[in-house]
Amino acid sequence: MIGGDGADGGDGSGGDRRPADRRFRDADRGQLLLISGLVVAVSLVALVVLLNASIYSENVATRGVEAADGEALEVRAAAVEETGALIDATNRNGTATGAEIEAGVDELNRNLSGRYASRGGIAVVEPVDTTPGWYLSGPVNDSTTAPDVDRIRAFSLTNESALPSTDAANASSEAFAAVFNRSAAGGTREVYLYENGGDVVVAGGENGSTPTELCRSAATGDPVTLDLTGDRLDGEPCPGVWPADLGDDEYDIEFENADGVGAAATATVESATEPASDTALTVREAVYDATIDLRYRTADLRFETTVRVAPGEPDA
């Protein structure tokens, strides 16, 4: 007869018969897994917090840099605009010399320094150099010439009398025109201004060929102003007015069919030769451009640049 101590250890209890040290080792492993899981969870939470903090800090820093950059560009724009206004004002007054412009830039420096000091910035504008030129103003006719022009800016024409009435096919012989005669490269570029069908028309051509219409505006009977270097007709955009292929070659500026138009011109040119004509066109020495050094500093930014200022110069 089989005795009572069977597979359950003989005491009938059915309990765990593993040795005590093994049971303790299994319990240790379970606790270790729980602790490891807790450590991993805490680490992930800490990583997420640190990542969010890093992203936030980078965004704040980036916004600060963009704001500082914007202020530096604002200072640059103010310095360029006011230097350009200074050059043009002294040219119109007939007092433009390198020394006059330098004195004006020194005054500008004092104004900008005071303006931006209240914002916690240090702005410094210093004159570097100027380029001599000629300021032209007054009536033009078929004998008006500006020879050996290297560069030109703020070149505009205004008519006082009625413009010739014609069309593109006859513009080369009938329309009022500013002609750019390229000395070295050869050939000519023409900009025509005339009336057609009750509109004022601007057209561009080359070598006297039939021109291409660039823009038109309803004629009002008032004087019309064509800004050649700014590509504008009476203040409105007129793309392509300035001949882009003039490049860096010297050219002479002449006029055709101008005698009956009562046209007046203003321009500032850089030329080794004094422009001349037999009209009342006034030609006087002027400053063509100026170069300035600009420095701007704040607690977060250091900005330095050298800028050439030539207001109204064509983009081409």
Rank of each mutant, 00 (worst) to 15 (best):
N91E: 06
N91T: 11
R92Q: 14
N93Q: 14
G94N: 11
T95E: 14
A96Y: 07
A99E: 15
E100I: 04
E100M: 10
E100F: 04
I101C: 10
E102R: 08
A103G: 14
A103I: 01
V105N: 02
D106C: 00
E107F: 11
L108H: 08
L108E: 03
N109K: 00
L112P: 05
L112H: 03
L112A: 02
G114T: 13
G114E: 14
R115K: 15
Y116E: 01
Y116Q: 05
R119T: 08
G120D: 02
G120K: 11
G121F: 04
G121T: 05
A123K: 02
V124F: 04
V124H: 08
E126R: 12
E126M: 09
D129Y: 04
T130M: 06
T130L: 07
G133Q: 03
G133E: 09
Y135W: 12
P139H: 09
S143F: 11
T145E: 15
V149A: 06
R151H: 11
I152W: 04
R153T: 10
F155D: 00
F155A: 12
S156M: 03
L157S: 06
T158V: 12
N159C: 09
E160K: 04
A162T: 11
A168G: 01
A169L: 10
A171F: 03
S173D: 14
S173G: 10
E174V: 13
A177K: 01
A177V: 02
